[in-house]
Amino acid sequence: MPFAAAGLGQQFLDSFTFMGNNTSHLLHDTLATIALSGAALGVALAVTLPFAVWLGHLHRGSGMAIRIANLGRALPELGLIAIFLAILGIGFLNVMVALVIVGIPPILANTFTAVDGVDPDVVDAARGMGMSELWIVFKIELPLALPLMFAGIRTSALFVIGASPLAAIAGGGGLGEIIVNQASYGFDGVLAAAIWVAALALLVQALLALLQRAITPEGLKAQARARGEKVVVGISDAERAMEATPSHA
């Protein structure tokens, strides 16, 4: 395609025309993408959270948690879908399994690190005052670990939504199905769906950032202020989520 200003503008104009003519189709596919990503994230959370919190509480398995996180990073999303095409064939199960695997590592690494890293003196004081282990986990460790844990969940959502259009090659449906099917929808459709997916990803990150801010305990915000840390939670906060994902073996 030539780099021509007129053509360039025309292509984006066409894609907006496509959006206007196919709004309901795009909305339907957007909902499908949200449902697929949400389900995968939900399963990843359900599978990972109890396990990671428990390991973090016991301060065990840090090597394993980090190794799984690193392994996860090395897994190409498209490759995962391809492998499960070979194992499970086309369809929902394949896509679900692949997206869940994509979503697990950031949740596991951040949750483990967050719970494991709760100030040991605070936990010692809690235990010394006669709190039960379960109470310590729910009333002390989880609230204190929440911001870092949530950063992991945001990263996980970012990875899962990022991979969800790829899932279309294995029959995952959603907006990706338009993107990979230029023969049926034309490039204006492909471009329109790509823009919608990008907007969806950015919107979800922004909403999660607001949510993260809302659930961060007031006392922790006060602590951050007292230490002179910035409590900026915006779209640009996605990078803080990334930092928390251990990258070293």
Partner: peptide
């Protein structure tokens, strides 16, 4: 029972260990 015993004994440590998320 350890937890019950500890509730009857005051406990202060050097780092204090106040719960930062609680008032």
């Amino acid at each position: 029972k350890p937890a019950e015993l500890r509730r009857e004994i005051g406990y202060v440590i050097q780092q204090i260990g106040l719960f930062p998320h609680l008032s």
